[in-house]
Amino acid sequence: SEEEIREAFRVFDKDGNGYISAADLRHVMTNLGEKLTDEEVDEMIREADIDGDGQVNYEDFVQMMTA
């Protein structure tokens, strides 16, 4: 549901600035027990970053979650 997606976005957007940065993503993945290299984190950001601004905004996140 849209509310679940919004809630998930809030979990990833640690600093609440409306964007998921590589640092935000790394933090959440580490908490989930996933040890990722910087390259892996950057690749995840690139794949999710639809508009190419280097971070994942809510619209990018929705597209990723509903793809």
Rank of each mutant, 00 (worst) to 15 (best):
R26Q: 12
L36Q: 02
G33P: 08
T66S: 09
E2Q: 14
M64G: 03
M29P: 00
D24H: 04
S1L: 13
M64P: 02
R10D: 02
E43P: 01
D51L: 09
L32T: 03
N31E: 09
S21N: 07
V62W: 07
I5V: 07
I50L: 09
T66M: 14
D13V: 02
K14L: 10
V62K: 03
M65R: 02
T30F: 11
I45W: 06
R10C: 04
N17Y: 06
V11S: 10
Y19R: 13
E4N: 09
E34F: 15
A48Y: 07
N17P: 00
V41Y: 09
E43S: 14
A8I: 05
V56Q: 00
T30C: 12
S1H: 10
D24T: 06
E7V: 05
E39W: 12
A67Q: 12
S21P: 06
F12Q: 02
A22C: 11
I50P: 09
E4D: 11
Q55N: 13
D24Q: 05
D60N: 13
V56S: 01
I5E: 00
D49Y: 14
D42T: 10
N31Y: 13
M64Q: 06
E2L: 14
E2H: 09
V56D: 00
D38L: 14
T37W: 07
R26C: 06
E7K: 12
K35F: 12
Y19H: 05
G52Q: 11
V11G: 04
G52H: 12
G33D: 10
T66N: 08
E39A: 12
M29Q: 01
E47R: 15
F9L: 08
E7L: 10
K35R: 11
V28P: 01
T30H: 13
T37F: 04
M29V: 08
G16Q: 07
R26E: 05
R10N: 04
A22P: 07
E40Y: 05
F61P: 00
D15F: 08
L32F: 12
N31L: 15
E34W: 15
R6M: 08
D24G: 03
I5D: 00
T30L: 15
F61I: 15
D60Y: 15
E59K: 07
L36C: 07
L25E: 01
V62N: 01
H27V: 12
E59P: 03
Q63E: 05
R6V: 04
N57R: 15
S21H: 07
T37D: 04
L25R: 00
G54A: 05
R26L: 11
I5M: 11
V41P: 01
N57K: 14
I5N: 01
I50Y: 11
E2N: 06
I45N: 02
V56F: 08
E2I: 15
D38T: 09
D13E: 02
F12K: 03
K14P: 08
D53C: 08
D42N: 11
K14V: 12
I20R: 00
E3C: 12
L25G: 02
R10E: 03
E40C: 10
D38A: 13
M44L: 10
G33I: 10
E34P: 14
R6N: 02
R46W: 04
N17Q: 08
M29D: 00
G54T: 04
G18S: 02
M65T: 02
G18F: 02
D13M: 02
F12V: 04
M44E: 01
G52V: 11
D53K: 13
D60R: 15
K35W: 12
D51H: 13
L25H: 00
L25V: 13
V62M: 09
K14I: 09
D15G: 07
V56E: 00
R10A: 09
E3V: 07
F12D: 00
R10W: 03
E3L: 08
T37L: 04
V11Q: 14
L32N: 02
N17S: 11
E4C: 13
T30Q: 13
Y58F: 09
K14A: 06
S21Y: 05
E34T: 15
A48N: 06
F61D: 00
I50S: 08
G33K: 15
D38Y: 08
A48E: 03
K14N: 06
M29H: 01
V56C: 04
D13H: 01
N17D: 06
G18I: 01
A23S: 14
T30G: 09
V28R: 00
N57H: 09
M44Y: 07
T66Q: 08
D49M: 14
G16I: 02
E3S: 10
L25M: 04
Q55A: 05
T66F: 14
A67E: 06
L32C: 05
T37C: 05
D42W: 12
V56G: 00
S1T: 14
M29C: 04
D60V: 15
E3N: 12
E4A: 12
E4Q: 12
E43K: 15
A23R: 08
A48Q: 06
M65I: 11
A22M: 13
L25I: 13
E4M: 15
N57F: 15
K14C: 07
R10L: 06
N57Q: 10
F9A: 01
D51Q: 10
D49P: 07
V41N: 02
G16F: 04
K35M: 13
E7A: 13
D60M: 15
M29A: 03
Y19W: 11
M29R: 00
T66E: 04
I45S: 03
Q55V: 05
F12C: 04
I5P: 00
D51E: 08
G54P: 02
E59D: 04
L36I: 08
E4V: 09
D13L: 02
V41E: 02
S1R: 14
F61R: 00
A8Q: 07
M44P: 00
G33Q: 08
A67M: 03
D51C: 11
V41A: 03
G52F: 09
Q55W: 14
T66P: 03
M29S: 01
